[in-house]
Computed example of a mutant assay.
Amino acid sequence: MQFTKDSGLVKVWVSLVLVGTYNLEEVPQFFNLKTVVTEVVNGTVL
């Protein structure tokens, strides 16, 4: 399974990080979820 910036779970985690509910270190290492969320939050994925 590979997540993309358009995956629902990525969008949920990005929003949780952006509002401060969680920080990037708390995103689970689930397939490539943490990598994609980090890239979206840091603006490296458009």
Rank of each mutant, 00 (worst) to 15 (best):
S15L: 08
L9C: 10
T21Y: 03
W13Y: 13
Q2P: 00
Q29P: 02
V41K: 07
G20P: 12
V12Q: 15
T44E: 11
G43K: 00
N42A: 08
G8N: 15
E25M: 07
K5Q: 09
E26T: 03
E25L: 09
K34L: 07
V19H: 07
L18P: 02
L16I: 02
M1R: 07
L46M: 06
E25Y: 14
Q2I: 10
V40W: 01
V40Q: 00
W13C: 14
S7N: 10
M1L: 10
N32F: 05
F31W: 15
V41P: 12
V40G: 01
K11L: 04
L9Q: 07
Q29K: 15
E39S: 01
K34Q: 14
V45Q: 12
G20E: 14
T35G: 01
V12T: 14
T21E: 15
F30P: 04
E39R: 01
P28Y: 00
V19S: 08
L33M: 04
E39Q: 11
F30W: 09
V37L: 13
T4R: 05
F3S: 03
T35R: 14
K34N: 06
F3Y: 15
W13A: 08
V40L: 02
L18R: 15
K5R: 13
V12Y: 09
T4C: 06
V41F: 12
G43T: 02
D6L: 10
M1E: 13
